[in-house]
Design a protein around this nucleic acid. Structure first.
Lengths: 140, 140
DNA sequence: CCGCATCCATCACGATACTG
DNA sequence: CAGTATCGTGATGGATGCGG
């Protein structure tokens, strides 16, 4: 375990090795790697939303999955749930600062996708063509 | 976002909205969101690896899952597989440039995890403690 | 309007055994 | 060493119906 002095963080100077980092990534992926979480977060990034609105804006999501997703996000402190005791109960969901900070990461992923999507699709097409011919360079 | 970045435009200059971005994120997550992919990528980020070595260095992975994971990565052009026709066949796996570029994204995720892990764990603990006690400044 | 409960299909994954 | 094939299982998620 080596010690560096990047001084970027306020943490002690012990550097997290990449095995630890990989483990962290897996943890996060276990949270946001499911089918709906990122879509819900993305929608909430636009602002406060009510349940129905979310279900409309996230096409294809079922009530059950929306509820489950929101509960998990709330449990992890990424989303806050506010209930207004009106007659037909009204509930609003909003990102916490922590939740909002996740959008930066999501953006990084989106940027990567935008840049490499074409390459990946191409590679997949070659693979599915049955040919083992790598062609002119696997990557640009 | 950077659409004009790529000179390859079959479409007019359409700006990617965040719904498109969210969709991209989901696609990527479908690839790397599984149990082993990021761990294998992380290992390959260290350098070229043979099958056995990978299985040893990624604790808990089965032969089957390692094969599946590597095949998917190869199909998507993130990993190259090289076979040496020696007597006991020898196979080496390595990240392509595209695959390597993913490590940057993974690092972003790891950084987020490192920074917010504690907060999330805390929030989860509160949630599991039944409820009711909103801690100090969870939300703004 | 909001959300939980139940049933059910699918699939990712693990264990095991076998081949080249 | 480097896989492939097969089977069993738990988790994920969709559909539906009820409750507050």
């Amino acid at each position: 375990m080596s010690v560096r002095h990047t001084g970027v963080t306020t943490d002690p100077v012990i550097v997290r090795d990449d095995e630890q980092a990989a483990c962290d990534v897996r943890e996060v992926l276990d949270r946001i790697g499911d089918k709906w979480t990122v879509l819900v977060i993305n929608e909430l990034a636009h602002g406060v939303r009510r349940f129905r609105r979310l279900q409309r804006d996230v096409p294809g999501i079922s009530q059950r999955m929306l509820t489950l997703t929101l509960r998990r996000l709330e449990r992890d402190g990424l989303v806050v749930r506010t209930v207004y005791p009106t007659v037909p109960a009204r509930v609003e969901y909003a990102l916490t600062p922590t939740g909002h900070s996740l959008t930066s990461v999501l953006k990084a992923v989106a940027d990567w996708a935008a840049e490499h999507r074409h390459t990946v699709i191409e590679s997949r097409a070659r693979w599915d063509s049955g040919t083992g011919a790598p062609g002119p360079g696997v990557d640009a």
